[in-house]
């Protein structure tokens, strides 16, 4: 397996080339500002450093949210167009699962992304990255109540008072390397939240 990994859904940009079980090149950036301008040169450099061409890869891994709507779309547009034009397998991965990949000493790990106004995008995973509670958009307090009887570690990149999350990329890749993948036309963001206009429109019905 020769693959490209793209994460633009969280605050930590990750571009990596993974060949079989080895990370040939990884770019980590804690600053996802100016993403749209800098991402393609980073991908180009990743291929160059790994001594591969885009046409050499057979698999694309891409996080499809939740997170910053614009951020998700930047990585996902690249993945969609690449997978469509190269006719290769594309595997979407939850950004919360990527955050959970750091593992914990507790039974479960709960990644959180600040969604403002006391809301978070949250999920609950075990240390093998099985999803225990589906990723959701939820009031932080409600989510905490829901999991408060469980042995859980909360992680977040945001200023929510929890430890920061690091990614174990190979763990995520190994979990998904045999996934079938999705049709690039149907590879879409998992926002977990309607737009405000849609919410108001639905309320008015």
């Amino acid at each position: 397996m020769k693959s490209l990994f793209i994460n633009t859904s969280t605050k930590k940009l990750v571009i990596a080339i993974i060949v079989d079980n080895e990370i040939k090149y990884i770019y980590n950036d804690d600053n996802s500002n100016e993403l749209s301008g800098k991402i393609m040169p980073i991908i180009d450099e990743a291929f160059t450093k790994a001594n591969l061409k885009p046409t050499d890869i057979d698999t694309l891994f891409v996080t499809n949210g939740p997170g910053s709507f614009t951020g998700i779309r930047i990585g996902l547009t690249i993945a969609k167009v690449m997978a469509w034009s190269l006719k290769i397998r594309v595997i979407p991965i939850s950004s919360l699962e990527l955050m959970a990949s750091m593992g914990s000493d507790t039974q479960y790990i709960a990644p959180l992304i600040d969604a403002r106004r006391d809301y978070v995008f949250a999920g609950l995973y075990d240390n093998e990255l099985n999803s225990i509670i589906d990723d959701r958009h939820v009031l932080l307090d409600d989510f905490k109540n829901e999991v408060n009887n469980k042995d859980v570690t909360f992680v977040s990149h945001d200023d929510l008072g929890y430890i920061d999350s690091k990614y174990d990329l190979l763990k995520v890749i190994n979990k998904h390397r045999h996934d079938e993948g999705v049709n690039p036309h149907e590879l879409n963001p998992n926002y977990l939240k309607l737009t405000e206009a849609e919410e108001k429109f639905n309320e008015g019905r």
Binding site: S36, M40, I43, D44, P54, T55, F69, T70, R73, I74, T77, I78, K80, V81, M82, S85, L86
Partner: peptide
């Protein structure tokens, strides 16, 4: 800006791949 970005990212990806 959000709309433009989809076209721009798609165009850049195509230009790069091909």
């Amino acid at each position: 800006i959000g709309s433009l970005l989809i076209g721009v990212m798609a165009a850049k990806t195509l230009a790069y791949i091909y």
